[in-house]
Design a protein around this nucleic acid. Sequence first.
DNA 1: GCAAAAGTGTTACCTGTACACCCATGG
DNA 2: CCATGGGTGTACAGGTAACACTTTTGC
Lengths: 231, 231
Amino acid sequence: MNSVNFYQGQSRFLIAVDCVILGFIGNEIKLLTFRRKIEPNQGGLSLLGGFMSDNEDIDQAASRVVKNLTGLENVYMDQVAAYGKINRDPGERVISVAYYALINIDDYKNSIIADSGAKWVNLERIDELIFDHKQMVCDAIVKLRRQAALFPIGFNLLPERFTLTQLQMLYESIYGEKLDKRNFRKKILGMGILERLDEKDKINSKRGAYYFVFNKEKYHRMLEKGFVFAI
Amino acid sequence: MNSVNFYQGQSRFLIAVDCVILGFIGNEIKLLTFRRKIEPNQGGLSLLGGFMSDNEDIDQAASRVVKNLTGLENVYMDQVAAYGKINRDPGERVISVAYYALINIDDYKNSIIADSGAKWVNLERIDELIFDHKQMVCDAIVKLRRQAALFPIGFNLLPERFTLTQLQMLYESIYGEKLDKRNFRKKILGMGILERLDEKDKINSKRGAYYFVFNKEKYHRMLEKGFVFAI
DNA sequence: GCAAAAGTGTTACCTGTACACCCATGG
DNA sequence: CCATGGGTGTACAGGTAACACTTTTGC
């Protein structure tokens, strides 16, 4: 068979990326949403998305979409899945690849946001999302939970310096359940991948809570020796 | 913005599905491979793939591809990921969505295989695969391990009736490690989702080993009560 | 001095893991 | 009678989960 003919006889499709952009705000995981600017479903609550171009990998397309909107680069992103139901986009057939992105809210505040109507919403509001975006968010959360339990990716949602209370509330928000303070601290400090600073956060308490930083280099050195992160 | 113009200004892409078809043969997980029939890489060892058509979901495309080759329907399949590097297919840009399929070798033997050159190979041979198919298989195995540990999907790789020894060897092959016979039996029988038949398999031993079947209905009833499969 | 969050150890339970011998049968 | 795979129970260790009080300090 002639390969040129074979390839050319096939249908071609629009490919989109949709980004489940998550931030940790007010001690809760929130989702960055938009009001859709085009028909169909103009004005509907939507994930941030965009079409893939010829000159980029899918991963690059997802990064570009996040960067164009938030101004942020080097954002931690991971693919969730491909969504390909025939009528998932009522406008026209579009196959979409969903990604989740973990952004540090401090970086976000410092970045320049285009006139976008972007809005952080609680995860309880995902029922309002258009198309199959709700499914994408659910799948993203499932994947995030699994990954966050096995790899130290949660730190991407926190500022450089954070308190153990903040860190605990982050994990509580990811897992959707309360954790025991003493057990949590024992476990995370026992791993030896956090460094305590001398400075304290005096904003959230009178006594003040020590700041910690995640020691990435130490973590990677420990990885080589078979260490596995688990929280 | 006019949505018709907006959609139409975008690039369109070939979309393929590639299937990591796994079977349990000779007490080992094996991969169904093909000699590629078209250029580029004609004759190279390849996963079974096909292009997506306009009139089907991605999931349906994957099922169709498996059915066309093996004759099997209702095969257990799960999406692995989307692969979208620019040059992943040297022939032309193709975005591929990989799936893994678990097939029962007894069904396969009874099915009519087209003149396909299909060949079961050991997982050690994945280095020979073309394009990024090796990556797909690796990702598929990782996902299979995670899923098989939490859901009773391994039974899709076994005949209706199986012995505990067979079942254990299946899990050993999935996880790539030996398991303790007594602990394995204690755990799997303790879940109460297997039914022992009165018949024995006398082929593999003189004494004979009881056949078991997976009681799907009971499993689903237990799920409602919060049961979690774990092996 | 009191309210509000930070910080700190011990115990009980349970799950996971290691381990070795007898049984049944066909040839 | 012997070789082959089938089938069975226990004990120990390590990890998880439950639990409450003292400290600090700004107001």
